[in-house]
């Protein structure tokens, strides 16, 4: 079946979309988080058919949770609980009922003004979760490790960066990697008590922000970062000073990347320039061990565009089997169906 794209306008710029996982069946529900509006919110949606006989499904809003600021990241800590970072410096854990998706989201824990410049507010720019732990970062350059089970702050790395941090990712249970506005990446050992990174390296020489970081699902030593310039950098952390590959990819900043959950060789990326691409990473990750890759292989990387280029930024994507959701600055969400993986 050919790829089928279906867009719905939702009257809010969408900064994050996340499918809500479901056991044993294809999920119909998803979260959206909005940004850059007078009033921002986290909404729960469900795909529903208007008529019985019709095939097309439209999203319908089930509930809304208003937040004071932009939603900067949504990540799951377990199946029904999400950790949300907000641009007023708060981090919240919200729970969605497993049985009644229409009931309002329940606050589990809230850390108010977790990131701040003293009395002044400061944005919490992103967070990552791993087995109930949350690592949050902010413009104040601090890293906070939160315990999502007990609801306390287990550790704070104060002044982890002198500039603002923009991306974070758990590499192992005790290691996080952060990227700042200049593309300076640092790896932190959470157990160590000194505020010194265990490793630091630069994304590229252009002093542009590292906007997102992820690691390969099956080879966790492979880390990818997207740059504000639209480049994609790939490191093998076993020898991390320089990126193994630096690919000039998108025309504008990379906004989100995700490895396909069912096929680790497939990477999806979105960008400020309005593109959503699918990458075939076979070449890049397999050849990693013997540091040699013929030049023509590098250029032969398979990249497909999943959607005609939008005229506004695509901020987010999330895929679940053959269906991918993405949210954009033209106040629309797009469902891409029949993606082969």
């Amino acid at each position: 079946m050919p790829i089928d794209v279906q867009g719905t306008f939702v009257s809010q710029k969408i900064n994050k979309v996340r499918w809500i996982p479901e056991d044993y069946m294809e999920t119909k529900h998803f979260f959206t988080g909005s940004w850059d509006d007078d009033e921002n919110s986290i909404k729960v949606w469900s795909f529903e058919t208007a008529n019985e006989d019709e095939d097309v499904e439209y999203p319908r809003q089930l509930s809304e949770y208003k937040v004071d600021g932009d939603v900067t990241e949504i990540k799951f800590t377990n199946k029904n609980v999400i950790a949300v970072s907000i641009s007023n410096g708060d981090v919240k854990m919200l729970e969605i009922s497993a049985y009644d998706k229409e009931s309002p989201l329940k606050e589990v824990y809230t850390w108010n003004n977790l990131h701040n410049y003293g009395l002044e507010k400061c944005s919490c720019t992103s967070l990552d979760t791993l087995e109930g732990d949350i690592a949050s970062i902010g413009e104040d350059g601090n890293v906070n490790i939160l315990n999502g089970r007990r609801g306390d702050i287990s550790q704070t790395i104060k002044g982890a960066d002198s500039c603002s941090l923009h991306s974070v990712c758990f590499i192992k249970l005790n290691e996080v990697i952060t990227g700042n506005i200049r593309g300076h990446m640092k790896i932190w050992d959470i157990r160590s008590s000194t505020n010194k990174p265990s490793a630091a390296f630069l994304l590229a020489g252009d002093e542009l922000a590292a906007t997102c970081i992820i690691h390969h699902p099956t080879q966790p030593h492979i880390v990818l970062a997207g740059s504000e310039s639209g480049a994609l950098a790939l490191w093998d952390l076993r020898m991390n000073q320089f990126p193994t590959s630096l690919l000039n990819a998108h025309g504008g900043g990379v906004t989100e990347m995700q490895f396909h959950p069912e096929n680790p060789n497939k990477l999806l990326t979105t960008s400020v320039s309005g593109e959503i691409w699918e990458w075939n990473m076979d070449m890049l990750t397999k050849k990693m061990s013997d540091d040699y890759m013929p030049v023509d292989d590098k250029t032969n990387m398979n990249v497909n565009s999943l959607m005609p280029t939008l005229h506004k930024a695509i901020n987010t994507l999330h895929c679940d089997r053959g269906r991918t959701l993405c949210g954009a600055d033209n106040e629309a969400i797009y469902l891409i169906k029949n993606l082969r993986y």
Binding site: W35, D36, G69, D70, T72, S87, S123, T125, E139, S164, H166, I181, A209, E228, G252, G253, V272, A313, D329
Partner: peptide, 16 residues
């Protein structure tokens, strides 16, 4: 401009 994210988006649009 409240956040750096917005500042970055404005500069990106302006560059465009």
């Amino acid at each position: 401009v409240q956040t750096e994210a917005k500042a970055m988006r404005i500069t990106a649009e302006a560059k465009k």
